[in-house]
Write a protein that binds this DNA or RNA. Structure first.
Lengths: 203, 203
DNA sequence: TGTAAAACAGGATGACTGTCCTGTTTTGGA
DNA sequence: TCCAAAACAGGACAGTCATCCTGTTTTACA
């Protein structure tokens, strides 16, 4: 029952957003009564918090972190995730966007509890990529860039590309971004120490 | 009066979102009566559409497109915009996010009219960057990457970085992304034909 | 079997929502 | 000056919202 409610809420928050999803709709589509819902989740906020912590975090883990751990390298991991998501989106024909980003935009400023929960997911996501890059470097493999910075760029470009894909209802921008990353950042000979230091001072 | 309503609506949609902003609140803070508001904007949707077309588009033009046109090169333009936004956010102490992305996430799936209006802004934004890159290339300047792809990456990484910054309430991720871009994509010797072709086939 | 707690049913409630309607005032052109 | 149209005032309207309440059923354990 609790699981059923979470399933419906996850789907609804993803498809229509938090504010646009009414408790009445959730009750109806989940087939639960008001009392039952109120028993497991006293408030709408509690329900959303559970969705974030139990479902959104799991989705990021499944889509990004686990594939990243299993990939032969950070570069291959990023490439395979981008490609897999793009393929999946094109197959299903429409783009609902990234669950984390969808909720992050709507709820980050609405409530501090939401914001902290969402920020934590972003943080572990970025850290997982950074760890993989560090592991690559210690194993003597390429990618001379700073792990934290490249991880930030990977997360940001994916998130932004999903935003654009959702708005355009076209996943091809994901491939464009991946190719731009491949041609540049993820190539082994990228970057110069000189430029890096100049930039550091400029910022 | 119409301007006043748009001012308040722009601010409210940006700070609290579309669904979380009630017409009553807008009327109160704008100091207009229901009749006046209904005269200029028959429905809430019409008001939001006006905000998107008149204000959000203008914000993107002012923040990104105009600086991009005036920049000596695409690379310099991207760098200066990232740096300027990061500096502005750190000065004001909090991050409200990108107006376009905020509304895009909430409204893209809610209504086709919203989605098309927002997609158009994304498109002109991306095209402005791509045009600048093409101009650079025709002027014999560096940046061998595909203009459309790099433009997509610039928009996506900025949008995603703003999402992360908004969620973390910390603008430093913008600098991280810019540095990663600088070290990789925006360096003149980036990328290899070989890898590029392999990738093309894989996707 | 007995019993206390958890799980659930189903509706009541009051606040709030977006929209629209009927008047009144202001404006701009003839 | 006259008049039609635009601009605005102020509130009514029906509907929806999240929350909470009082009972009833099921479960878990002794």
């Amino acid at each position: 029952m609790r699981k059923k409610v979470l399933d419906v809420a996850e789907e609804a928050f993803q498809a229509r957003g938090y504010h646009a999803s009414s408790m009445g709709d959730l009750m109806a589509t989940a087939g639960v009564t008001g009392g039952a819902l109120h028993h497991h989740f006293p408030t709408k906020k509690a329900l959303a918090l559970a969705v974030i912590e139990e479902r959104v975090a799991a989705a990021v883990e499944e889509t990004w972190i686990a594939p990243m751990r299993m990939a032969p390298s950070a570069r291959e991991g990023v490439r395979s995730v981008f490609a897999a998501v793009a393929a999946e989106l094109e197959q299903q024909g429409f783009v609902r966007g990234c669950p984390l980003n969808n909720l992050a935009h709507e709820l980050s400023l609405a409530d501090p509890d939401f914001r902290i929960a969402l920020a934590g997911i972003f943080s572990t996501w970025r850290q997982a990529i950074a760890d993989k890059i560090s592991a690559d470097q210690q194993a003597g493999r390429e990618l001379g860039a700073d792990p934290q910075r490249f991880a930030a760029l990977a997360v940001a470009s994916y998130s932004g590309a999903m935003s654009m894909a959702k708005t355009a209802q076209d996943a091809s921008v994901l491939r464009d971004c991946l190719m731009a990353l491949e041609q540049g950042v993820m190539s082994s000979k990228a970057g110069t120490r000189r430029r890096s230091r100049i930039l550091h001072r400029a910022l």
